[in-house]
Design a protein around this nucleic acid. Structure first.
Lengths: 223, 223
DNA sequence: GTCAAGCAGATTGTCTGACATTCTTGCAAT
DNA sequence: ATTGCAAGAATGTCAGACAATCTGCTTGAC
């Protein structure tokens, strides 16, 4: 048997398209936290039927990107600082582990990719487009997580980061946050490039802690 | 205003009932890994309509308890040892952290609950009911995770453990596994009761590693 | 004027039925 | 035995319907 060409690309279904569209809409902050989503409105806006929409909503509910209260319908959860803290703590746990492992096993090609994504963030950081900053930063982590050798670590991390996308956008717009974030990410990159596990862990931990602190500030300002 | 009695219990909807029923069915090993689920069959078996069923299936898909391939429908994923390893590794990361935190902050009442659940497992361990063993063991962890002070840690852990329920059932039936598992859990309990964070972490790590080894054996036997 | 009760509209939860598209399987032909 | 095709099965998606529930506003009582 030839080594599984795996050419079967999975067809895009309405359900999946819808999940992707809504997820992106949530990331971009299109919906106010706490606001309710009306099924009929979304159906007409997306041009799909209610059953398809409801399936998409159930997926997002399971991802904790929306909440669905029986007889009240879907809404964007208002993230409390308590929960946000908990997410940052677990994110730290996972990201530190991933960075450490990544430093030991990343391939030269992937290292170049990582460098490229760092450059992309550098460019975004000097602009004022905070959405671009969040997106390029996400690419950077994503490469690290993809090269840590543990797909589950990657999967769980992605799920958690998705849930704090709200804060990430806001704190990136903080005075000087993008620049210091860049410095932290560069240090992570250098450690990984040097294959220094301990340094990578340390830099990664530092980065998450600072991101959390920035999120706290932006939250206190924001309300 | 009285301190929010929160008496509003959320109504049981068909969708949620169905998710619970199917989840339980999967845990009990009612479906063969790799086997496909036929929507129309499930509908008649559960006495519900196809839209409701499909919503439930989307929830389970997002929990990674089933897979849905477009145009092929839902099936029980066959867990590879590679993925199982990854899950055990992340589980270790989370569970060790939780046990350590739990040792520092658990309340006397909750500690009694933990002791009770340990006794429950002890009883189950001396029987041959491996489902009861898995269930009572799950209660034990569940109390630890509920008292680690981080609801996200708890949530993520629950999701991961759900995905390896298949192995847990099989490895519990292994000769002597229930008894050694009991010994390990007792050590975790003692460490937590003593408020010894380091010991709790160590015992917890040991426990996950042994569980993983047992799962490996049962898997190699099983195929 | 404030508060409670109640009614009308809006929204969700669920079902039935339908149909095109895509897999799967068994049979026929080479 | 392998290939190709056709019938059947299963899924993806939609439209429409109706009861149960929630929401907001009006009305009425104090």
């Amino acid at each position: 048997m030839p080594p599984d060409l795996n050419l079967r690309i999975s067809p895009r279904t309405v359900q999946r398209e819808t999940v992707d569209k809504l997820r992106l809409a949530i990331f971009s902050g299109l919906f106010q936290p706490g606001s309710r989503l009306i099924e009929s409105q979304l159906c007409t806006q997306l041009g799909i039927s209610r059953p398809s929409l409801r399936e998409a909503l159930r997926s997002l509910e399971a991802e904790r990107l929306i909440e669905i209260v029986p007889n009240r319908g879907p809404s964007i959860p208002a993230l409390s600082w308590e929960v946000a803290t908990a997410i940052y703590e677990v994110r730290e746990l996972l990201e530190v582990e991933a960075a450490g492992r990544c430093a030991l096993r990343i391939s030269p090609e992937q290292l170049r990719e990582l460098e490229k994504s760092l450059s992309a963030f550098e460019k975004a950081a000097s602009s004022n487009d905070s959405l671009a900053q969040v997106m390029t930063a996400a690419d950077f982590y994503s490469i690290i997580l993809a090269n840590c050798g543990n797909p589950i670590l990657e999967e769980v991390h992605r799920g958690l980061v998705a849930r704090i996308s709200f804060f990430r956008g806001r704190s990136m717009s903080l005075e000087g946050r993008a620049q210091s974030s860049l410095a932290e990410m560069r240090e992570i990159f250098e450690s990984i490039a040097a294959g220094d596990e301990k340094a990578a862990r340390k830099a990664s931990k530092q980065h998450v802690l600072r991101a959390k602190a920035a999120a706290k500030i932006s939250m206190d300002n924001g309300i």
